[in-house]
């Protein structure tokens, strides 16, 4: 594997890969080594950060997605989508018990199964408490906790599967280059929304859980007023 490819993988991990790098990774002949490098880099990052965020590391759904795509000339049958979703959902729920990390999006899992072309991207940069810099020599540029996440690449359609009867499709017109920016904005928005919700929930919980004011300790930050 070339150094260039390794750098591209590292960039992808940090959410900084551009379209060219994305293509480089996706068009590589040696699929297996890309995958193992990907997994290894994450392992390195976790060990260095000494955190417990690797619960989804082994969850590689790429082969199932590509298999499904291959069998259907790029179009997925509804049945296949359901099947994939349930496989993924099962794996995710098996793992949920172990995790203790704040804000772990799993948007991608529902999305992945229904996109015509997908790439697995493991980036999530919320809540980074890191202060020290990493030692050089490792292909790791960010200390953010990692989570597995799947993003649609180009011309992807998404399926919102909210109960069997009311599924609907949204068309994405976004170019890959825009993804990182709008994803960061959306993640920030999501985090703020959750903090607001957390506060409102806790305001009601302290009145109804028999423990009172101490429960406010669960709310890490809030707007003064």
């Amino acid at each position: 594997m070339s150094d260039q490819l390794r750098e591209s993988i590292s960039a992808l991990m940090d959410g900084e890969a551009d379209e060219l790098e994305l293509r480089r990774i996706m068009s590589t002949d040696n699929d297996e080594s890309v995958r193992s490098t990907w997994a290894r880099y994450h392992l390195v990052r976790e060990v260095m950060q000494d955190n417990d965020t690797g619960a989804y590391r082994h969850l590689d759904i790429s082969s199932q997605v590509s298999m499904a795509i291959g069998h259907n000339n790029g179009r997925l049958s509804e049945e296949k989508i359901d099947q994939l979703e349930s496989v993924v959902a099962q794996k995710v729920s098996d793992d949920q018990q172990k995790t203790i990390v704040w804000w772990r999006p799993m948007a991608g899992f529902a999305v992945a199964a229904s996109v015509a072309m997908a790439v697995i991207v493991g980036v999530q940069t919320l809540e980074t408490n890191a202060t020290s810099e990493l030692a050089s020599g490792f292909p790791v540029a960010s200390k953010a906790p990692m989570t597995s996440r799947v993003y649609p690449v180009a011309g992807a359609s998404m399926q919102a599967s909210g109960g069997a009867s009311n599924a609907v499709r949204y068309q994405s017109s976004e170019l890959p280059g825009d993804i990182a920016a709008s994803r960061a904005a959306a993640d920030l928005e999501a985090r703020h929304r959750l903090e607001r919700y957390m506060l409102r929930h806790t305001e009601r919980a302290v009145l109804n859980n028999g423990q009172g004011m101490i429960s406010f300790a669960r709310v890490a930050s809030f707007d003064k007023k």
Partner: peptide, 11 residues
């Protein structure tokens, strides 16, 4: 919406 149909957080 396109950024996330489903998400989970745990603290």
């Amino acid at each position: 919406v396109q950024r996330g149909l489903e998400g989970r957080a745990q603290k």
